[in-house]
Nucleic acid binder design. Structure first.
Lengths: 219, 219
DNA sequence: CTTTTATGAATGAAGG
DNA sequence: CCTTCATTCATAAAAG
């Protein structure tokens, strides 16, 4: 059942960041040397907020569905429902809340990573990751997680590419001559699980850039 | 079931808000001299967000009201509701029947799981799993394995995150005392403030349980 | 500016 | 539990 979201939320917060750390630099969050306070949300908080909103969207969606099925024989509620959906408030609900930043390797870093990857060592152990990260950090912002993810993705995609390139001997029921330009269109065969994005709650909520445009990444 | 929703809505409405914000009404609030990046929301943005969330809360509330009046004479609504929740098409990720092989928790299920997880009882005993699965199955397709995996992953990842997040600050024993025995990331990790790995807790705008009401932009 | 693509990150599941 | 892999999601970058 969906009850007391508030409690659950609170706990969620606690669990993930009970430590009120100051982070590496003493003053980051909301106070500055001018005595002014600003509102600040961390990515974590943003994520939680996002999930909550998605939950709302989903609930609304489900409620609507429920009503549809319950009142399919009448029309009085249909009108109202339609109204609700058209309500300016609702339509304005969709906004992207956070511009999630993501690491982008610098050319130098990429080159190094690529080189290491090609050296064959399939699994960069934890220790290895640390070393690599350390080295790459001299060429730009980077974290071990970034390195880890990079290798994970690199391997996975490399593998997938092979699948498309190699299968020259087997069966092809629904085959779609993808082998020609497989170098870049490794993901074009999503004929199987591509879903309707327009109706997903997530999109409903976060596809718009309105709010995000107001978020500032300040220095 | 409906009652739960109703209560939940009520609680949301009555939630308090206690965020201290003076806000530098200007606009680009925030400044810091350490070269780190933080996200900042202005009052206007807060207001927009608040409206959006309130709108959702209102819609949910109205839908619940509507549903109540429409089904006040019968009791089969509960069954229907359950059905809807279990219907794969209604879930947030509902779409192609032929696609998807991997379970994806619905927002509602996620909320519940998080709540249980945060309850601290880090003992996902077999029996407990059964219970949880049973409860969650009311909100969508799910199996015990799913629940088991979820807790395993949740725990492992939470732990790992802790290592990254709580490098050199440390303290705050209020929470689970995870054994960050292993060495943690070097300072290069800490500099990640501008990336999504960064997580600081403190002075949350939404520390409050319920966002919809906690968002009140006071002034 | 809008759409598409490339790819960093998140997460369910499997193996050990 | 921890690590690894596969798939999916989201977004920076590129294309139109």
């Amino acid at each position: 059942m969906i009850m007391d979201w508030e409690n659950q939320q609170k706990q969620q917060q606690n669990q993930q960041q009970q430590q009120h750390e100051e982070l590496t630099n003493g003053n980051n969050n909301n106070s500055n040397n001018n005595g002014i306070f600003v509102k600040v949300m961390t990515d974590e908080q943003m994520e939680i907020l996002r999930k909550q909103i998605v939950a709302y969207a989903t609930i609304c969606e489900q409620l609507v569905e429920m009503h549809k099925s319950l009142t399919s024989h009448t029309d009085l509620s249909g009108a109202r429902l339609g109204n609700l959906y058209c309500d300016p408030f609702v339509t304005s609900v969709g906004h992207k809340i956070t511009g999630r930043q993501r690491w982008t390797p610098t050319p130098v870093q990429l080159q190094i990573l690529e080189r290491i990857f090609d050296q064959g060592n399939g699994t960069p152990s934890k220790q290895k990751i640390k070393e690599i990260t350390s080295e790459l950090s001299q060429h730009g912002q980077i974290s071990e997680t970034n390195v880890y993810n990079w290798f994970q993705n690199r391997r996975a995609r490399s593998k997938r590419k092979q699948q498309v390139t190699a299968p020259n001997n087997a069966e092809s029921e629904v085959e779609t001559e993808v082998e020609s330009s497989n170098e870049k269109k490794t993901k074009s065969e999503d004929f199987q699980s591509q879903h309707n994005q327009a109706t997903r709650a997530e999109d409903l909520c976060f596809q718009n850039p309105e709010i995000s445009s107001g978020m500032h990444s300040v220095d």
